[in-house]
Write a protein that binds this DNA or RNA. Structure first.
Length: 667
DNA sequence: GCAAGGTC
């Protein structure tokens, strides 16, 4: 018997389909596998890593484990996919040959070796080989199986070292932060090779914004033929600008006028990063990814985890576009099919998966609202990459007024091209009239505009994912998870992302004591070391020892009291701010904070309860909104209630209560 | 209960 191991079920089925005519799907312990009686072969798909590295259980108690002991701890592997392992063990007993057909990359090599170790335990003498393919097409798969090679144990080892380094750094620093801050439990503080540099980007950007000093400046505009032209100089003082403005006469001479027709490139095919960036117009990257996975599993779109931005030649683009004729995208498909259909392409070309594209037609009715949003995005993006280019007419005019140069430019969309398909980006048109070089025209008006320099912008989730990719932080499959992690650790909130004071404190603490973990350099260096391990030039021990020594020194040097104090200050500041935000105002009885509470019924209560029993009633139905308007009499924030019938003003909850009491006394 | 990486 022969056993072929693939990285996931989908690939296993595909391999069985391509290699074996008579394959049957079987299922044991809820795990699919495929069997070909004539070839006496099984194909089993894993779920990526089926085991994970960890410390032995005796290190589980954070408070009782000295941090330095983690540096001496051995690593153990814990089974993550019990049912797969159970099936693997049973199949392994029957086979003489195993072929590892996991993904052709570093993690794939390790995933294969993980399975192999389990097989060898029950069948030490099994023959093993490895096939490498970078596309799951019949040609690629057949070629790979005709040329099996040996397992690259060094490559697998390098991935294993990556796991250990991530764990040891992550665990030591996470526990260090959490223990010093007294945050052990569900609200712990964390650090890691990818999350910490990402958080640092957000924190540093916020610092730049806080430190930014806006500067005023003045610009001069003249109006000619109904449009405004701007002087090619800005002034730092208003007086200076006014002086120049006063010197401007009534006429301008046209010194340059050009009209150009330019083509605007269409969007590039979706890889994961581009997809998530665009999807972040509608939802969080995490949710977008989850929905994309669902659409993939139901067969509507291709594999959503890819770095590739170039369609492979084997993909029948015309057939895919034709698929949408007569559907919700009929108009769009016809625009595409009427053109030359030369696809756009991005810079990155990989061979493992094609760019994300639709694989089947869906109708609005069969998908949920969010699924449709993502599906429509993928379809529109796909069709737009095959569509004609958009064509703009650009006009530029240059005017001379008393030796001063004024400029204006305009652009007008003449052929919508892909823009009529990819409707998420608005074309900003700005039309200016015709001018003739040499003509003199009347200045209709002139003015000074006061402007100011703007601080850098905060990162949106979409921009952050792109930046992470550029800096080599995380992978296509993990970036959205890292961002989600930053939210759930309460390091950031909102989109664009704002860091909390806790995040400031954590980054400051890490910068002072373990700056390496806050820099993308750590990932870059790790990549180098892993390459060296894969090439056999460096061994695991040397690499691990470097990290252990580094962390050992950090733990020896650190002043945990000081660290804890600064972390607690940040956390306390966030707690205070949050309370302030959620609070309705000061308690008139004791000076504590009034908040919305719920005990059987909801009501306004005091944070000093049970010492203070002040309460005010609230309506039991509808959503409560605490506005920023404050009652003059009681100093409490006014409240609005939104029900499905509309929004109504409750006003100050104290006034509301008093008037209710009065009414009751009258009747 | 810690990381990041596969996969669902």
């Amino acid at each position: 018997m022969w056993l072929i191991i693939a990285e996931k079920d989908k690939t296993a089925r595909r391999i069985a389909q391509i290699l074996f005519r008579d394959f049957k799907r079987l299922n044991r312990y809820g795990v699919n596998y495929y069997f070909s009686p004539s070839n006496r072969a099984y194909v089993l798909g894993l779920k990526g890593h089926i085991v994970e590295v960890d410390f032995p259980p005796e290190y589980n108690d954070w408070r009782r484990t000295p941090l330095k002991s983690l540096l001496r701890a051995k690593f153990v592997w814990r089974v993550k996919e019990k049912n797969i392992v159970k099936l693997l063990v049973e199949l392994a007993k029957e086979v003489e040959r195993v072929t590892i057909a996991t993904d052709y990359d570093r993690e794939g090599e390790l995933i294969g070796v993980e399975a192999l170790k389990i097989i060898r335990k029950v069948n030490p003498n099994v023959k093993v080989d490895r096939v490498r393919f970078s596309a799951i097409t019949p040609a690629d798969i057949r070629r790979a199986f005709e040329n099996p090679v040996a397992i690259d144990y060094n490559l697998a080892k390098s991935a294993e070292v990556r796991q250990k380094i991530d764990l040891i750094w992550g665990a030591v620093l996470t526990r260090l932060l959490s223990l010093s801050a007294g945050k052990v439990g569900k609200d712990f503080l964390s650090a890691g090779r990818v999350q910490s540099p990402t958080l640092r980007l957000i924190v540093e950007r916020e610092k730049q914004i806080r430190e930014f000093k806006s500067k005023k400046f003045w610009e001069i505009y003249v109006k000619v033929r109904g449009i405004e032209a701007k002087l090619d100089k800005r002034f730092e003082s208003k007086e200076e600008a006014q002086k120049v403005l006063a010197s401007i006469g009534d006429f301008a001479k046209v010194t340059k006028f050009e009209k150009k027709v330019v083509e605007e490139n269409k969007p590039i095919p979706f890889n994961t990063t581009e997809f998530l960036k665009e999807a972040s117009r509608f939802m969080s990257p995490d949710k977008a990814m989850r929905i994309a996975e669902e659409l993939y599993m139901s067969g509507y779109i291709s594999y959503p985890r890819t770095d590739n931005t170039v369609y492979p030649r084997t993909l029948n683009l015309r057939r895919l576009a034709e698929m949408f004729v007569g559907t919700d995208f009929d108009r769009e498909a016809k625009i595409v099919l009427a053109g030359d259909m030369v696809p756009s392409k991005g810079r990155r070309e990989t061979k493992d998966h094609p760019p994300i594209h639709p694989t089947a037609v869906a109708s609005k009715e069969e998908l949920s609202k969010d699924e449709w949003i993502i599906y429509e995005l993928v379809v529109r993006r796909f069709l737009s990459t095959l569509a004609p280019k958009a064509i703009w007419e650009i006009r530029r005019v240059e005017l001379s007024v008393n030796g001063l140069t004024f400029r204006a430019s305009g652009k007008r969309l003449i052929e919508r091209g892909w823009r009529s398909i990819y409707t998420y980006v608005q074309a900003e048109e700005n039309v200016i009239p015709e001018f003739k070089i040499g003509e003199t025209i009347k200045i209709e008006a002139k003015r000074i505009a006061e402007k100011k320099t703007k601080p850098p912008q905060r990162y949106t989730t979409g921009r952050l994912i792109k930046l992470m990719e550029k800096l080599g932080l995380g992978t296509k499959s993990t970036r959205h998870e890292i961002i989600k992690k930053l939210y759930s650790r309460k390091y950031v909130y909102g989109n664009p992302l704002k860091p909390t004071n806790t995040a400031f404190a954590v980054i400051e603490a890490l910068k002072r004591n373990a700056e390496l973990i806050t820099l993308p350099d750590m990932t870059a260096k790790l990549e180098e070391d892993m390459d060296s391990i894969a090439e056999g030039k460096l061994d695991e021990k040397t690499v691990l020892l470097k990290s252990v020594r580094f962390l050992d020194k950090i733990l020896s040097d650190i002043n945990t009291d000081e660290l804890g104090k600064s972390l607690r200050e940040g956390i306390e500041e966030d707690r205070r701010k949050k309370l302030e935000k959620n609070s309705i105002g000061r308690c008139p009885k004791c000076g504590g904070m009034l908040v919305v509470k719920k005990f059987e019924k909801r009501f306004v209560g005091c944070t000093n309860y049970p010492k203070c029993d002040f309460t005010l009633p609230l309506p039991q139905k509808g959503r409560i909104y605490i506005t920023s308007k404050v009652c003059e009499k009681h100093g409490l924030k006014k409240i609005k209630i939104r029900t499905k019938d509309g929004t109504w003003d409750l006003g100050c909850p104290y006034c509301n209560y008093l008037s209710w009491k009065e009414k009751k006394n009258v009747t």
